[in-house]
């Protein structure tokens, strides 16, 4: 599988971070689960960081956009 581009990793991990972190609020409000904030933050960063590394070394892969577009704007 081809490696994901740096830009793709940045965008993907930014979105992943927000989603994983928002789940904490959802757990707190909807389910009444009070997670430890420090621990949860560490966990979030770990999930996002591991995903970033895995994407970077091609362990998991997303096909990047066609190269022709790289500098089109």
């Amino acid at each position: 599988m081809r490696r994901t581009t740096q830009g793709g990793i940045l965008v993907g991990c930014g979105v992943l971070f927000v989603i994983v972190w928002e789940i904490r609020s959802a757990l707190g409000l909807l389910a009444g689960v009070d997670t430890n904030p420090q621990l949860y933050m560490l966990l979030t960063l770990a999930v996002v960081g591991l995903t970033a590394v895995a994407l970077a070394i091609g362990l998991i892969g997303l096909r990047p956009e066609p190269p022709a577009d790289e500098d089109a704007q």
């Binding site: 830009g7 793709g8 965008v11 096909r63 956009e65 577009d69 704007q73």
Partner: peptide
């Protein structure tokens, strides 16, 4: 049109490196 396929797989075919698009 950029070659994306699948029910949701097309999301990967978008120009995510373009700051205007993203």
């Amino acid at each position: 049109q950029r070659g994306g396929t699948g029910l949701l797989g097309w999301l990967r075919a978008l120009p995510w490196r373009n700051p205007a698009f993203t």
